[in-house]
Write a protein that binds this DNA or RNA. Structure first.
Lengths: 324, 324
DNA sequence: TTGAAAGCGGTACCAA
DNA sequence: TTGGTACCGCTTTCAA
């Protein structure tokens, strides 16, 4: 038994011949070591968890793919947890992760804080914060440069001639939403046309975008550019603008944030700030796995760059094919 | 120890007082039973696996949510496996599932067959086939009525006055694609205008839809209706039709299949055959869990009904707001 | 280089 | 109704 164990764990002190015999026997018997037993005996389960708010929001599957692909490469499995951004579901999952002896966690969350992660720290389970860091001191973090992205978006709208630019901001509890808003404010506050009523808060989804546009258009008859805090809101915004009879981009230009592929589906296609979604997931997974392997111990912050993707929704004056 | 175990497992033979003492102690010590140890000792891990082809295709997160919600309700966790529809990834996952002592499996796959699932049967791990059954005899199956849906789609296109209806069919290796094609053929073959060149095969994705439309329009100058085998293809088809200068629905009407929410995002919105996606996932999970609990033993087939959702892409002659 | 034996943290049977 | 104890399948000393 002990020798078989040594073979499985590639322990050096095994005679080559014995090793071969064991390997052959394992194949003949279709033997597969039980992860449970190994885990119980103190070994890693080779499983990491990924906690995301909602798998139905196309941004997250992108991240998940990045995480999963890297994990697979290093022979790790991914346990996916949908939290619905609900604190109680997150807590419940954190317990489950410990019960199931998960090796590490990548988490995207607005609700979780140090205290909640304390039990994981005690159990020596490393954590990587993805996309929405609540703390950049004690945890490794992977995120993109939200503020810069917002600045790029607004400057692009200005460059194409927009004279009054509104912002649909995500909920304040999202770090990402706050940073993007700050980026927007940083630029527009220099202009005389700027008033706080140009910022409309909404949920990070399609419906949120629709509602915000309705309010914005009602309150500010002369806006000619909108920077939406994420692509789903931009999608909703576009839909609603068309419904209100606005021409996009000639009446109102529109720029989103994220770079999800849906933005290429609409008519016109939506200009957006593209985050390296897949790469963010991959980077988070790589960091976590290296920590698990003991290859890195310090915490580190990885801020990935975003990119402006110019599409029809900000190409004023261009003739586009008719949609209907 | 034994008594604590009894309390955890709600064994009846425990004195109420003792039980209380144990519960209090567990709380004070923040005691959480190890799933691994329980699993090793022969208990269920309360975890089921869901194998899907690709989490990035919006159809699957919908299913996954259904599965997950029901699982959560019954205190089960879901281990998500992305197979990319690749046989080798599926095989590798099937092994992992056994190593990790997963209790049951819900699988959506074109590649897996009886033989591959044999080890699971041996290990007494129940399996439910979802969406794409390869066998309806020996496994419980949850799927929707694809053939009927296709018939509804074509009849709807006929009803609005289409005189020549093409079909973009998914890859033949998908049962779902075959059934929908059969539904289409069943109706159209009665008409004198029908020729096999009205069927174009393509991948079940946006790009597939685009390519198919290009070919269809080139080969059949007079088609005025298209039934796409799934919504992603319909999305691509719409995009390409607009690019080719076709008016949808007036020149060519379009109907998809699945009912994913993206079809509401386009201009015009796309008519589709809606599958009860979430319910399919939920039904599969429920069936599996009941099997695990021993509440059902026989295999059963659940065929859920689909529904025609009429939208702009088949509302000929209606004025729609301009998109650009 | 190998085998024997003591855990890992539970469950379940048996006797008390 | 409770406690003692032999596993579950593997890892890891310790001796041989």
């Amino acid at each position: 038994m002990a020798t078989v164990s040594r073979v499985i764990n590639k322990n050096e002190y095994v005679n080559k011949e014995t090793e071969q015999k064991v390997i052959v026997a394992m194949q003949e018997l279709h033997y597969e070591p039980s992860s449970l037993a190994r885990g119980l005996a103190g070994k890693k389960m080779n499983t990491i968890a990924l906690m995301i708010p909602d798998i139905s929001n196309p941004f997250f599957p992108g991240l998940a793919r990045g995480v999963e692909d890297v994990a697979q490469q290093y022979d790790f499995n991914v346990f996916l947890c949908n939290s619905d951004d609900l604190a109680y579901k997150e807590k419940s999952y954190l317990e489950i992760l410990r019960k199931k002896s998960i090796d590490g966690l990548i988490i995207i969350s607005n609700n979780v804080n140090e205290e909640e992660l304390e039990p994981l720290r005690m159990a020596n389970i490393p954590v990587v914060l993805l996309d929405r860091p609540f703390n950049e001191q004690n945890y490794s973090v992977v995120r993109s440069n939200n503020r810069n992205g917002a600045i790029m978006a607004v400057e692009h709208l200005l460059a194409i001639g927009c004279k009054k630019i509104a912002h649909i901001a995500g909920p304040e509890k999202f770090v990402t939403a706050r940073e993007r808003r700050l980026g927007y404010e940083g630029i527009v506050s220099q202009y005389s046309w700027y008033t706080p009523s140009l910022i409309e808060h909404a949920n990070f989804d399609i419906e949120g975008g629709k509602q915000a546009v309705t309010k914005l258009v009602a309150n500010n008859t002369d806006i000619d550019g909108i920077f939406a805090g994420n692509d789903l809101m931009a999608l909703g915004a576009l839909k609603q603008l068309i419904k209100l009879g606005k021409n996009v981009p000639d009446d109102i230009a529109l720029c989103g944030f994220d770079g999800i592929s849906l933005t290429e589906l609409t008519q016109p296609e939506i200009t957006t700030i593209q985050q390296p979604i897949y790469e963010m997931g991959a980077a988070a997974a790589l960091t976590l796995i290296k920590k698990l392997k003991g290859e890195i111990t310090e915490t580190k912050i990885q801020e990935l760059d975003v990119k402006l993707i110019i599409r029809g929704s900000t190409e004023k004056g261009k003739k586009l094919p008719l949609a209907t």
